[in-house]
Design a protein around this nucleic acid. Structure first.
Length: 272
DNA sequence: AGAAGGACCTGCACGC
DNA sequence: TGCGTGCAGGTCCTTC
């Protein structure tokens, strides 16, 4: 579900409400979503103040007054919302952080998300690729050159570039006029420059629209995003292309639904 | 080592 | 109405 823009929206919503406040109590309804499994989360969090809240890739980073950190990943269907302590709990509520009057609640039906308590370990982010916003196209090019996979598949590899998911990969490739099947290593410098710009532009516009809500995604206050109304290809199979009036096509690439315009992203851009 | 494919979960839309 | 099927925004692990 939540890709970079959605996670950024959640973080922006939570930050002013949480930073500087203390976790009074913790309730853990599904211990199996916490890693490492042996960690005593209640002992680690209870009584601690949150001194910083940030986003890294698709993860929400909590920094405590002990300088220890934990990460929450929303998986496909996860939501992290602020609710009154007495508000009724929805099904699949797995974690509740009581901040005194309000609670941060983690709800995740499919349980692909989770909480990683990493403490003082600074190596947790080592395997994550660079953030796409602010990435220089030359650095992007170096990373793409290393793989022969289809560019669509490469964009989803979080060790290559971190934060892009299925929606924004399709949208960016459309804007860059690149066929999703093109081998990453075969892209020209011009194409990579164009793609880098398309990724950054798409992500920035999506953040401005507070993310894409297809079904589950909600921000910290429970509100839906609006960027789904601006999708050019994602979820539009069979509909006319906004650029050429051709028909948007859906294929499966790397096991994921992939949407593109065969005309605008035609074979001419496909090599190898 | 890199790449491909299945596994992990629940809920929903659709067709019969 | 009810059941079976396929699909979903993501990652991880195994196999080749």
């Amino acid at each position: 579900m939540p890709e970079l823009p959605e996670v950024q929206t959640v973080v922006d919503g939570l930050r002013p409400l949480l930073v500087g406040r203390s976790i009074i109590a913790v309730e853990l309804c599904r211990p199996d979503i916490v890693r490492p499994p042996a960690i005593d989360l209640l002992a680690k969090l209870a009584g601690r103040a949150i001194v910083d809240l940030a986003r890294r890739a698709k993860m929400i980073v909590f920094t405590l007054d002990t300088n220890e950190r934990f990460y929450i990943h929303l998986g496909m269907t996860g939501q992290l919302t602020i609710e009154a302590t007495e508000a009724p709990r929805r099904v699949h509520t797995h974690i509740l952080l009581d901040m005194g009057g309000v609670q941060v609640r983690f709800v995740d039906p499919r349980r692909f998300g989770g909480l990683w308590f990493v403490g003082h370990d600074s190596g947790f982010e080592d395997r994550m690729g660079p953030e796409p916003l602010g990435l220089k196209w030359q650095d992007f090019a170096k990373r793409l050159k290393r793989t022969d996979r289809a560019i669509k598949v490469a964009l989803l590899d979080q060790t290559l570039i971190a934060g892009i998911g299925n929606i924004y990969a399709d949208e960016a490739l459309f804007l860059a006029r690149i066929h999703p099947h093109t081998r990453a290593s075969k892209l020209t410098g011009e194409q990579i420059k164009h793609l880098n710009r398309a990724i950054q532009g798409t992500l920035r516009r999506a953040i401005k629209a507070r993310g894409s809500t297809l079904r589950d995604y909600r921000d910290a206050n429970g509100a839906a995003g609006k960027f789904q109304n601006q999708h050019r290809v994602y979820g539009r199979a069979g509909q006319p292309c906004s650029n050429c009036q051709g028909t948007i096509k859906r294929i499966v690439l790397g096991g994921r639904g992939t949407h593109f315009c065969p005309t605008c992203q035609g074979r001419s851009s496909r090599s190898g």
